[in-house]
Design a protein around this nucleic acid. Structure first.
Length: 287
DNA sequence: AAGAGGCCCTGATAGC
DNA sequence: TGCTATCAGGGCCTCT
């Protein structure tokens, strides 16, 4: 479900609420997430204080008082909610603000704080929670991942050097987390549209000017998406239930058959499957 | 080694 | 109405 911008919105909204709060209790309803939750998962978390909520790529990292960390990935359908509990009904499904009711069928993990609880809901269970024992293990956990678009390592030369001999298409590169981390299926299409590059173009035929555009637009698109609270195409919301609005700024994603938004361009947006993911582009202005 | 494709899983929607 | 097929913000693993 979420790409870097959506995870960042969750991080921001979560951080405000849970920082310096103590975990009172943890309830696991289903251990079979992408990575099976260990039996001692609850024990490890209980009585710990949340020191900080960080993010790398599409991963949330909760820094805990005993130096270990809770790594969270939301997969395709994972969502995090903060719900109040009142004394009458400890398990009431009433969100802080905008979500009147949360369906509880797939609430796999609940983390209780003093006055509210964090609920992890994930119908497809592609997401996971993972305990990382220290900073060193965290670094190792991420060692294969490429830089984020905002990292100074990610620049024109980095892109050029990685693509220059490759037959693989440029869209797949943007989705390859070992090359660049944080971009997903929505933003890959949007970045290539702004860069005027056809998604099926082979890596080796991307020139330096185009690399520069990819570099520039990757940052631009993700930052704009964060500014607008992420993209709520299905049901993305922050932890308090607020929707994002970047879906209103999509140039190509889910716009198949509609007119290209570029002035003077007569093209219609096309949809094409590239490595099993829907890809949207304008063949008139993306060459 | 690079790259394509399958698979993990459930739910919503389209099409018959 | 009720079935079946297809698709969905991800990532890992296997096969060629």
């Amino acid at each position: 479900m979420p790409e870097l911008p959506e995870v960042e919105i969750i991080r921001q909204s979560l951080n405000k609420k849970i920082i310096q709060k103590t975990i009172k209790k943890v309830i696991v309803r289903n251990r079979n997430l992408r990575i099976k939750l260990p039996q001692n998962f609850e024990k490890i978390l209980e009585n710990q204080i949340i020191l900080d909520v960080d993010r790398f790529s599409k991963y949330l990292i909760l820094f805990l008082s005993k130096k270990n960390k809770l790594l969270i990935h939301l997969g395709m359908s994972g969502t995090i909610h903060l719900l109040k509990h009142n004394k009458k009904n400890f398990l009431t499904n009433t969100s802080f603000y905008n979500s009147p009711k949360l369906p509880d069928k797939h609430n796999h993990i609940e983390i209780f704080f003093d006055k509210f609880r964090l609920v992890y809901n994930d119908p497809r269970r592609f997401g996971f929670f993972e305990i990382i024992k220290d900073q060193k293990s965290l670094k190792k956990r991420f060692e294969k991942l490429g830089p984020e678009p905002f990292d100074s390592k990610f620049n024109m030369n980095y892109i050029y050097d990685n693509l220059k001999d490759k037959k693989k298409n440029v869209k797949s590169f943007l989705l390859d987390q070992n090359f660049i981390s944080g971009i997903g299926n929505i933003y890959a299409s949007e970045i290539l549209y702004l860069s005027k590059i056809n998604p099926i173009k082979e890596g080796k035929s991307i020139n330096k000017t185009e690399c520069k555009k990819i570099f520039k637009n990757s940052k631009l698109v993700l930052l704009n998406a964060i500014k607008r609270g992420g993209s709520s195409i299905r049901d993305f919301k922050d932890v308090l239930g607020n929707k994002g609005s970047f879906q209103n700024n999509f140039k190509v994603y889910q716009r198949e058959g509609q007119k290209c938004k570029r002035v003077d361009c007569k093209g219609l947006i096309q949809k094409k499957n590239i490595s099993n993911r829907s890809t949207f582009f304008c063949s008139f202005c993306q060459k």
